[in-house]
Design a protein around this nucleic acid. Structure first.
Lengths: 103, 103
DNA sequence: TTAATACATCAATTCTTCTTGATGTATTAT
DNA sequence: ATAATACATCAAGAAGAATTGATGTATTAA
């Protein structure tokens, strides 16, 4: 059977990445942890918009958050991109298909 | 400057992959070239639906097509997934961000 | 030449995602 | 306690993507 669960998670990851604003956020966070206010300044976008995209990224497992006082800091969770790379590798090898016998 | 063009292409690729039916098609094509009729049989989906998704995949560069008689055969273009892997690798390294100096 | 097959495309509808402005909640400063 | 801040969430609307059934086009078969 095809790895349906893995595929669903991968789809969430792919969708999370497939959006310009979210990519901008990710690229910003690759320079380190940031609070929402930092991201607002950098991107010049409305707060609700940023929070919306942060939520999508968080739910996909791309980022994690941590509250400190009245700030909420977001940072990348490296494992997400790592697992996506792994998934794509399998896809390339045809290891996700029904008929595959990769191991 | 951030590699905007590369990102746009990557977004197209990510979107193309981030859909269950299209993934099913990709997984099927990983077992070799198929005509639309083959895919219809395998997936049990309407022809217009399959053609729609094939178009998305083709425009993203994930697949290529070739006509033979009244059949149109589709197959994976390996380069697409390869370049996506490469893009993700850069993303992981923070090499897509404005501030990066990866080379 | 007419039929049938294989596929693409289209218009209308539906479904999903994104945006916007407003309101709600927690935390700190006064 | 009150006010200000940092952020989340919500409802309404806008925009985008997918589905559906129908029609169009090329190719081969009869």
């Amino acid at each position: 059977m095809s790895s349906a669960v893995a595929n669903e998670k991968a789809i969430d990851l792919l969708k999370a990445l497939a959006e310009p604003i979210r990519l901008e956020i990710i690229e910003s966070l690759s320079n380190g942890e940031k609070c929402v206010c930092d991201l607002m300044q950098e991107t010049d976008l409305a707060q609700s918009k940023i929070s919306f995209h942060l939520k999508v990224l968080k739910e996909a497992g791309v980022i994690t958050d941590r509250q400190s006082g009245r700030w909420v800091y977001y940072k990348l969770d490296i494992r997400a991109l790592k697992s996506l790379q792994n998934w794509i590798k399998k896809l390339r090898k045809g290891c996700l298909s029904e008929a595959s016998s990769c191991e």
